[in-house]
Amino acid sequence: MSGVDRVEHTASGLRAHIVVEREHFAVDVALEVAAGETVAVMGPSGAGKSTLLQALAGLEPLTAGEIAVEERVVDRVAAPRVRTTPMNRGIVLLGQDARLFPHLSVRENVAFGPRAAGVDARTARASADEWLERVGLPGSGSRMPRELSGGEGQRVAVARALAASPRAVLLDEPLVALDPATAGEIRRMLREQLMGITTIAVTHDAADAVALAERLIVVEAGRLTQSGPVREVLAAPASGFVAAIAGVNRLVGVARDGGWQSGDVGLTSAEAASRALAATDGVALAAVFRPQDVRVVADGDSSDGNRWSATIMRLESTLAGIRVHTTAGQVDVSLMDAAGLEPGAPVRLRIDPAHVRFVPVS
């Protein structure tokens, strides 16, 4: 078998119930990741995402709960107590800092895990060179960590982690410190190299979740608030946070007369599933739509579509023009169309019902 051949795992990948008491709240999250699956984790700053990964890796003690990797319990608080050291869990954690050993060459960094597991030096070094080629750094084994760019350092960190044949990989925002072009390259490399490896990836970027993961779980204030296939979660945000990362408006109201109502604002949807949700008056619903699908119109506009009035709160420059934040949703307009718009001014908005969806509010 080649030093970089993958081992097929037939058991479930990772199953855990993480409970960690923090100063202001407890992180209490149950999750299960199938063997070979990648699950993305997103949530606001301070929500408990990194605590979740630290607990899985054995760097943060559990207050309660249990962690099992491929059906082997590596941490359990209840009797019989189990507490496996981080290095013996079969889990590797990759963070924003590559944390390479500065005194070892790139080759020796990658060979470190196999050698620590008893693989002879020659075989481990040959495997390291194969892994370096796989992550896009052929012939770089003799270089020292100080000679690497940030992106190269992350590639070596990935090679070092996977060379150790982990049962699960944890990613804690490994791309956040990289420039966009480098981050895109590393994202593509991760997608290729993590295929078939049980992975949990914490990220703040929806592009990472879409590119790397099959499923997305959202953690807010230490609790799991939404989960499902990545695109489905982003298309039907259950909270303002998810709406923000998905780049959509999410206005909370109730079903009224087959549509959606909040105060003086009423919207209809052309989608059959949305109309079905709105069939019962009084049901809590959120209206979801993209800022780029909203139009600013004159007071006398009589074109088809949903129309409502709002007040401009602030203007924000974007790459495409101006985002207008109003009391009833966000609107994207061109620089030309933004002329005359200012905070505090009333504005009339319109959107085609085909661009509006209703989602339940739990």
Score class of each variant (00 low, 15 high):
V4C: 05
S12L: 07
E23R: 13
D28H: 01
D28A: 10
A35K: 07
G36V: 02
G43L: 00
P44M: 05
S45L: 03
G48L: 03
K49D: 05
V74S: 08
V74P: 08
V82D: 02
R83M: 06
N88F: 11
Q96E: 14
Q96I: 08
S105Q: 12
S105M: 10
V106I: 13
E108G: 08
N109R: 13
N109V: 11
F112Y: 15
P114V: 13
A126C: 10
A128C: 00
L132Q: 14
E133Y: 06
R134N: 09
G141H: 00
P145C: 14
E147R: 15
L148D: 04
V156W: 10
A161L: 09
A164Q: 06
R167I: 06
A168Y: 12
L171D: 03
L178I: 05
G184R: 13
R191W: 08
E192S: 15
M195T: 13
T198D: 11
T198I: 07
A201M: 09
T203G: 13
T203F: 07
I217S: 09
V218T: 12
T225E: 08
T225R: 15
V233T: 07
A236I: 01
G247F: 02
N249S: 12
V254R: 12
R256C: 11
D257H: 09
G258F: 06
D264T: 10
V265R: 05
A276P: 00
L277K: 03
T280V: 14
V283T: 08
R290L: 06
V294F: 12
V294K: 04
V297R: 01
G305K: 08
S317D: 08
L319E: 06
L319D: 08
L319R: 11
R323I: 01
R323T: 13
T326S: 06
V331L: 07
V333F: 07
V333K: 04
S334P: 00
M336C: 06
A345N: 02
A345F: 08
L349G: 14
I351F: 12
